[in-house]
Amino acid sequence: MRNSLNARWRRWINRRIPRADSQTLSQKNIFILPTAAGVVYGLLLLVMLITGINYQNSLIYLLTFILGALFVGAMHQTHRNLSGLSVALVRPGEGRAGDDIPFVLRVTAGKYPGLGLSLSVEDSSVESVHVSPGESRDVVLPVPSAHRGYLRPDRIRIETRFPFGLLKAWSWLRPSSAGVAFPRPLPAPDAAGTVQDGSEAASSAPLAGQDNADLRPWREGDMSQRVMWKRFARTGQMIVADWQGEQGSPHWLDFQAFPGVDAELRLSYLAWMVADRVQKNARFGLSLPGDTIEPDSGSLHGERCLRALAVWGEQPPRDPDGQPFGTRQAENAKAGVSG
């Protein structure tokens, strides 16, 4: 019963707030309710009214009416803090699984200032954001991630209680873009022996040795020893041969290098190795089933590899039922259902 009500409520909200990376708040998608303090305030006014009646005290009546009117005025004011505001997900974050991953949101005020805003997702929040009329501010909101893969909170809540904290107005942004949580790096058991360790790899590497040369035009940064000078003399083209297994270093980081190890664990090993190579500024390529990244070096390359590791075997989140994706809450919900 409760669940079905919840689901209906959720569906109703999802209808009003379509999934989009940016959302302009208006009458249609702003919700407003008294806070707990607001409820107590209402009760207090009732008690004061009774006091006024009982003691036939006009000034208490007056005070009660003024405070009541202020409450209604505050409702308008609180609503206006959000009205016309647009919230956009500028950059979904990247980070290690299990960490809070920073999402960058841009809040742009319309005609009225957006005061005392707080943005929150699950149990993390950013408080006290103020935006002047017509201006915008970028807010970094940490989104708690549960595991590697795509990370997309179902709803990012934007709320205000300004001016008196007696009412809260809120709305949601339901982002369509997802951030990425990299696998958590774990030191690989024997990092150097990647190629030699596995039986398949060990047997294939020497064979591949001379035959499996990769020929490609010269690029800046290639070592002169590797240029095929003979060919250059013949054709005038600088061609470089990339020899597999050259220099004896693990040139390729291979998913297949850890036979019998759980896939997630392999990804964690690989993530560690990627970080390690990037730190050593080594050249490396990444070979995943269904996805290969050519050898290169540098931090951008490293990020590209981590991203590939992160989303390997994962589907980008799609909307239909509007569930959070990859956040801690999503994980808890799943655990709750299965347990």
Binding site: L115, S128, F164, L166
Partner: peptide, 13 residues
């Protein structure tokens, strides 16, 4: 009191 509440709700404004 009302001004105090406003400051409480947006102290760094």
């Amino acid at each position: 009191l009302m001004v105090g509440l406003q400051i409480l709700n947006a102290p760094d404004l």
